[in-house]
Design a protein around this nucleic acid. Structure first.
Length: 628
DNA sequence: TTAGGGTTAG
């Protein structure tokens, strides 16, 4: 834009560099040198933009702020040059700012380079301008120039650059910047601290995030919101709920972003009762339910097991975007309702206004995979390219899952071999899972080798491989894998199961004896196991070695956290009522059969939330369509 | 004059 302005609006542009002009022109003599020309009458100026400007700085500022596009800014920029107002840092900075807001970073950069005098605001705006266009390299470059200069760090630039570290997931640089800021002796305000907490949390350093949050003398709404989201993202959504309550007790009223964050945390918690309370609160407070909050509510209800409430929310929304549609399609998918997911997709594309995106297709393929809809899944996979969506590794993973679960291992293997994109551990994990279900040791070995190469520090892969060998009676191989795991100092971290009973959430881990009703729980489990055995339940020995370390601790019984939660649910809720168990692990085959028999024997409907799907056990059947 | 937080999958 500026290149176009040269020579067109001011003769100086055509025969000298701007740097010379600025170097000979100080704030004191600017008017004298530019011999003021009325803004509206200068012969070289184009038609007046549709904004009111005057010679006064304040008028320039307000005129700049009314600009809706770069062309309008360019016209005011030209007038500022002509009338010598570019010497005014307030005007120049505002131009820089508006260029960066409009993502015209090249124009901002040209102006910045031409400014002979710059203040901290100019630098800060440039750091932010590059960050806004995701040009993190240049954003960091400008920030480094600030560090090298005599300029002081300030509370405006720091949040921007910390955010850049967050986006790059670069906690090393983020931590370094934090240290430099502390060393400078400045007081870090809420903006900086919120950015730091968020950066640490998104980089997986939740302990650092918590420490900083706890040490803050004062916290505002955004800081609380960041911490609530951080807990949810790091697998502690129950703590998000406690923090939200604490925040409100301190008199801080949540805004829409905070509400979306806690709704998201509640979705991860999978607590039906809390979901109801939260939605009631949102209605009571009259929070406008726009697209974002509406979509978060769809997701929350669905993940808390209430598919009808999710659909009701979806239907009530005035505006929906591709995320809202994808969330509803995904919800049908992990509830085992592939037909509904496919129908909704047809409605979405039939309307034609919202093209499906990558995630819509992942959700659809997942729905097909969980329900065993191989033919439909293959059709959807072919359809993707028609909508301009190129299959990525996640789509391929769904396809491997789909074909693998259906026992079409050779086809799945062929797809892996011919795909041109990089294979990741999830893809191999999916294939390995299928090999295990269909007891193909040879293919499983191959997949496991790739997995161990990709993630040598993941104990889950070693356990899976040793279980596959154990299944095949290859005890020497089992010992080798176990030894390798021990040599590398790897131990499987036990997962937790949550169950909601009487409006409270209880958490169990394998062999847990910390619950106050522990004795009753174990008695109930023993009784139930006896009844299930009478009804024909045989423990699945394929999973004997699963979490073997914990099993040694609890003796001969395979007390997985899921089973403890189920036993607690049976004693804590009235007979005949619905049981909802939400968890963060894959339900193993043994537990899956255990739930199936339990629903038959206890006449209860049991809903279990797995890592990424729901299983609804009713009178000995599972509606999820998952086959084990 | 410049700054921080929110929605879908895996």
């Amino acid at each position: 834009m500026l290149r176009n302005l040269r020579g067109r609006f001011h003769p100086f542009w055509s025969n000298a560099t701007t740097k010379v002009r600025y170097s000979t022109c100080s704030a004191d003599d600017s008017h004298e040198q530019s011999s003021y020309v009325p803004l509206t009458d200068h012969p070289n100026l184009p038609e007046s933009p549709n904004v009111s400007v005057s010679r006064d700085t304040r008028d320039y500022i307000s005129a700049i702020l009314t600009c809706k596009n770069v062309s309008e800014v360019g016209k005011i920029h030209a007038r500022a040059i002509v009338n010598g107002f570019l010497q005014d840092l307030t005007v120049a900075n505002k131009l820089l700012y508006i260029y960066s807001q409009l993502r015209a970073i090249a124009d901002a950069e040209t102006l910045f380079d031409e400014m002979s005098v710059k203040d901290p605001v100019s630098w800060s705006v440039m750091v932010g301008g590059f960050a806004k266009t995701n040009d993190f390299v240049n954003s960091l470059r400008v920030f480094r120039e600030i560090l090298r200069s005599s300029l002081n760090l300030d509370n405006y630039t720091l949040p921007i650059i910390i955010r850049v570290c967050r986006e790059k997931r670069d906690v090393v640089v983020g931590r370094l910047i934090h240290k430099v800021a502390l060393k400078s002796g400045m007081d870090l305000d809420c903006y900086v601290c919120a950015a730091l907490v968020d950066m640490y949390a998104k980089c997986g350093e939740i302990d650092d995030a918590c420490k900083l949050f706890d040490e803050m003398p004062k916290r505002d709404l955004v800081t609380w919101t960041v911490m609530i989201g951080a807990c949810a993202d790091s697998g502690k959504p129950d703590e998000s709920w406690v923090l939200f309550e604490r925040m409100r007790n301190e008199g801080i009223v949540p805004d829409r972003a905070a509400v979306v964050t806690i709704v998201n945390a509640c979705a991860k918690l999978g607590a039906l009762h809390k979901a109801v309370i939260l939605h009631d609160y949102i209605r009571l407070m009259n929070f406008p339910v726009g697209v974002v909050l509406g979509t978060a509510l769809i997701d929350m209800h669905a993940k808390c097991g209430n598919l009808d409430a999710a659909r009701e929310m979806f239907d009530s929304m005035k505006d929906r975007n591709v995320i809202s549609w994808s969330a509803m399609i995904a919800a049908y998918g992990y509830h085992g309702k592939a037909t509904k997911a496919l129908e909704l997709f047809d409605v979405m594309v039939g309307d034609g206004r919202l093209p499906p995106n990558e995630i819509t297709f992942v959700s659809l393929l997942n729905a097909c995979s969980h329900a065993g809809f191989v033919k439909e899944g293959l059709e959807i996979f072919d359809l993707m390219t028609k909508y301009g969506v190129r299959p990525n590794v996640k789509h391929y993973t769904c396809m491997i899952d789909l074909l693998g679960r259906a026992g079409r291992l050779t086809e799945a293997s062929g797809m892996i071999e011919t795909m041109s994109i990089q294979k990741d551990e999830t893809l191999w994990g999916s294939f390995l899972g299928a090999c295990r279900i269909h007891k193909n040791v040879e293919m499983a070995e191959k997949a496991a080798m790739f997995l161990l190469e990709l993630q040598p520090q993941n104990p889950g892969h070693y356990i899976l491989l040793s279980n596959i060998y154990a299944n095949d009676g290859k005890w020497e191989e089992v010992a080798k894998v176990r030894n390798l795991m021990n040599q590398r100092g790897l131990k499987k971290v036990p997962g937790y199961t949550w169950i909601e009973a009487n409006n409270r959430t209880h958490r169990f881990k394998v062999g847990d004896r910390t619950h106050p009703k522990s004795k009753e729980i174990y008695d109930a489990l023993r009784d139930l196991t006896e009844k299930l055995e009478e009804a024909g339940f045989v423990p699945d020995t394929n999973f004997v070695l699963h979490d073997v370390d914990e099993e040694v601790k609890v003796g001969m019984l395979s007390l997985h956290s899921e089973k403890l939660a189920l036993a607690f649910g049976l004693i804590a809720t009235p007979e005949g009522s619905l049981l909802r168990i939400t968890k963060n692990l894959r339900v193993c085959g043994d537990c899956h059969s255990f739930f199936k028999f339990a629903s038959l024997v206890t006449k209860r409907e049991i809903i279990v939330r797995d890592a990424n799907r729901f299983h609804c056990f009713k009178e000995g059947s599972c509606s999820c369509g998952d086959y084990w």
